[in-house]
């Protein structure tokens, strides 16, 4: 009896020790993390009104209050709606164009043809496109959309191209040997293989898209988060301005971490371990 239970006891104690150590580390990590929050928020709260005037640097409590006011007024939802619409249309278009360019870049000729386009799209700052489209299109919807497309299509196309390059040739050959038709091959081999690359492209492209959208809204728009930011900064209402930045930040975080992540998890359900990355 004793001999039988002995290893069990040994086992549990070892595990307990490990668990205890892990728990201790977790507690320690959270302790420092919370301390960090307290420190930075404290400096901010203390700084407003003491180091800088409160009109210049409103503290966090003030911003939360303003946030509630703006939300209750319905202004925030309206701005979000306008911005989301622009991002959706612009990035949707950009995704299609990027996918197309990435796919035809399998051909070396087209790859070389689009190489400089990709380079320009990646290096030219969004500000330039925002200003040029603002001059040409004024307040029309075309301005922000063209800007989003020009700044983000390259990220999608580069990723698709990388994915196409690393297509598993043996699987494609096997598909051919077993006479799987073109549609089936694309559906079951090419698309699942490309999916992670596409998601990377979307994630990168998307996080740029929302910044660029807000930038274009600053110059040429009558609605949206960027417009509200500009208005409040021109009226020198720092509390509203910081609140809009916070709103914009939360919104982006929500779209990236919740919406995109949900899509990704859903798509990669069949693959274990990938969904987490």
């Amino acid at each position: 009896m004793v001999a039988a239970t002995d290893p069990d006891i040994q086992h549990t104690t070892e595990e307990q020790v490990a668990q205890q150590a892990r728990r201790k580390e977790l507690v320690q990590r959270w302790f420092w993390r919370i301390l960090g929050y307290i420190f930075f928020l404290g400096v901010w709260e203390y700084g407003s009104g003491r180091i800088l005037e409160e009109a210049l640097l409103p503290g966090p409590t003030r911003i939360i209050k303003t946030f509630g006011e703006l939300w209750a007024g319905g202004k925030m939802l309206d701005a979000f709606q306008a911005t989301t619409f622009r991002i959706a249309v612009g990035f949707g278009l950009s995704f299609i164009i990027g996918l197309f360019i990435g796919l035809i870049s399998q051909n070396r000729w087209w790859e070389a043809f689009f190489r400089d386009a990709t380079l320009i799209s990646l290096t030219a700052p969004g500000l330039i496109w925002a200003l040029i489209t603002a001059i040409i299109f004024g307040n029309r919807i075309a301005g922000p959309i063209i800007t989003i497309v020009l700044t983000t299509f390259a990220l999608v196309s580069v990723n698709v191209y990388e994915g196409v390059k690393s297509l598993p040739k043996d699987l494609v050959d096997m598909g051919k040997a077993f006479r799987v038709d073109v549609i089936g091959r694309n559906r079951h081999i090419v698309l699942p293989h490309l999916a992670p690359y596409l998601f990377t492209g979307v994630r990168f492209g998307f996080s740029i898209a929302w910044k660029v959208t807000v930038l274009t809204e600053i110059f040429s728009s009558g609605r949206g988060i960027g417009f509200e930011m500009r208005t409040s900064s021109q009226l020198f209402q720092m509390d509203e301005f910081l609140t809009w930045i916070l709103a914009f930040f939360l919104f982006a975080l929500f779209l990236e971490k919740v919406v995109l992540q949900a899509f990704e998890n859903r798509y990669f359900r069949w693959r274990q371990g990938v969904a987490a990355t």
Binding site: Q28, W30, S233, F241, A252, L253
Partner: peptide, 29 residues
């Protein structure tokens, strides 16, 4: 690890912050 936990979230927030927000903010200040 302690310092890492202390700064981590705030560095990530800084990373995600667009330059535009800083430009307007510092311009006003």
């Amino acid at each position: 690890k302690a310092v890492d936990a202390f700064f981590h979230d705030w560095v990530m927030a800084l990373l995600a912050m667009p330059a535009l927000a800083w430009a307007l903010f510092t311009g006003l200040i």
